[in-house]
Design a protein around this nucleic acid. Structure first.
Length: 422
RNA sequence: GGAAGGGUGGCCGAGUGGUUGAUGGCGCUGGUCUUGAAAAUCAGUGUGGCAGCAAUGUCACCGGGGGUUCGAAUCCCUCCCCUUCCGCCA
């Protein structure tokens, strides 16, 4: 949610943001409603004031055992007017809020304008692995080694679900533990175990609702929503709360399942385990003071890079252009790791600063040095998404005989095991 | 799922229709006292909307929504949440 006052002061900047993000919110309509809304509020407040005065007078008269029936009668009509205007205001307000909820966050100044082509590669780490044989895809490797079974996952659930077996399942678990260990131990993040089903309010805070309603799974009976990312429950930890300034920045990490309908996905995107309906992800979330949030984004990105480097995966850091930013994002770095079998980079992490956009929606505040209540800034980053990390690992560390070497940092989590072979 | 009891300001806790944004206590901030601290004592201490350059004014908020009434924290309806007991259950 944007600050209403900011929209009033900078309508052109907000309109540009909407264009640049390919969104459709109508600022002129919102501002028009805002004017009538404020006029209504003034009228209502004025009438309420009259009624309040009259009521107090009635109370006094009654105490003095005097007749108040005339005043009661005249106040009745005021009450009627108020009720009428209140109804009007309520109706207007709900349309107003609805439209406001479709206004995206404004991109940061240094975000390039445009669509995918305007993305900027910020840096690159490592060299894409070279092979003296034709590298296989993870689905071929997975089938050969009997560690990935897409057919049976489809039988159990449907297309777009995955099943890891034996060393494959263990490798995923090792990765989860390795990442959590680094983030909690070395990077100072606090680990949280969270609900995977959340309510509407939580989905609204982080910005999935109303826009992404069709991309999520939900339970109709209880109106629970299956989280598409750990960001949702993590960020909502402090929904409606005031955080002690001395505790900022707060850093949290959680491994959660993520559920995505991925309606409309097709083709090479969905082959293998690149794009599935359910996957595990280790997620990092930060709550910071406004002044430091962009510095914290750099730090956060660095924490994720540390994982990729430790795993020895070649990657590049992409600063997303405005058209590629999420609805709530002000600035985002995508981390893309090289998958030799697929022959392309895969987005394994996305690190974003949401400035006060989510904090406003979820009413998450802190008290600044002047003891004024301010909204915090929220950030998050995947650290990392498991299936795509597995793809990159399997395809990068494959050998000519179809076996896979396990990166050294993971071996302690796999009982010292050095490779996976059939 | 059934039954009962609850949800009031940072916290505890009064308050069943009339100047109640709300008694009191704790906490917090400042003053007095003290070499200093504690204790004591005095004062202050919510959030948000609207108008205004501001001082300020005004309205709203006692879990959410709706209703009754000239007037609602207080009465009615409804939903949510918490506690206890019963049932079910990994």
């Amino acid at each position: 949610m944007l600050d209403l006052d900011f929209i009033r002061q900078n309508p052109d900047r907000v309109k540009k943001a909407i264009r640049d993000k390919n969104e459709k919110a109508d600022i002129d309509s919102i501002l028009k409603m805002d004017v009538t809304r404020r006029q209504l509020i003034q009228q209502i407040d004025q009438l309420r004031h009259e009624r309040k005065q009259a009521s107090e007078k009635i109370a006094r008269l009654k105490k003095e055992k005097k007749d108040a029936s005339d005043l009661i009668q005249s106040t009745k009509t005021v009450g009627g007017q108020i009720k009428e205007l209140e109804k009007k205001l309520k109706e207007l307000n709900s349309r107003f809020q609805e439209q406001l909820s479709w206004v995206p966050n404004v991109p940061a100044e240094d975000v390039p304008v445009g669509n995918e082509k305007a993305n900027v590669e910020v840096r690159q780490w490592g060299q894409p692995a070279k092979f003296d044989f034709k590298p296989l895809t993870h689905w071929d490797l997975g089938r050969q080694l009997d560690i990935l079974d897409l057919e049976r996952a489809t039988k159990i659930s449907g297309t777009g679900f995955m099943m890891l077996k034996g060393a494959g399942a263990q490798l995923e678990r090792a990765l989860i533990n390795f990442m959590l260990e680094i983030h909690t131990g070395k990077h100072g993040y606090r680990e949280i175990s969270l609900p995977f089903l959340v309510n509407r309010a939580s989905m609204f805070t982080t910005g999935q609702l109303p826009k992404l309603s069709d991309d999520m799974y939900r339970t109709t009976e209880d109106d629970f929503w299956l989280i598409p990312t750990g960001e949702v429950p993590l960020t909502n930890i402090f929904q409606g709360e005031v955080i002690d300034r001395k505790k900022l920045p707060l850093n949290y990490v959680a491994a959660t399942a993520c559920f995505r309908r991925e309606a409309g996905s097709y083709g090479r995107e969905t082959r293998g385990i690149n794009r599935v309906h359910q996957f595990t992800k280790v997620e990092l979330v930060k709550f910071t003071e406004p002044a430091t949030s962009f510095d914290e984004l750099e730090k956060l990105t660095g924490r994720v890079e540390a994982i990729l480097q430790a795993l020895g995966l070649s990657y590049r850091v992409i600063k997303l252009a405005t058209g590629e930013l999420s609805f709530a994002g002000a600035k985002t770095y995508d981390l893309e790791a090289w998958a030799p079998g697929l022959g392309r980079y895969l987005e394994v992490s996305s690190c974003s600063n949401f400035t006060d956009f989510q904090a406003r929606r979820g009413n998450i505040k802190f008290r600044d040095q002047d003891k004024k209540l301010k909204f915090v800034h929220t950030l998050n980053g995947s650290g990392l998404a498991l299936p795509r990390t597995l793809i990159c690992l399997m395809e990068t560390y494959q050998q000519a005989d179809g076996s896979i070497i396990i990166p050294e940092v993971l071996r302690p989590y796999l009982g010292g095991r050095e490779m996976i072979k059939s």
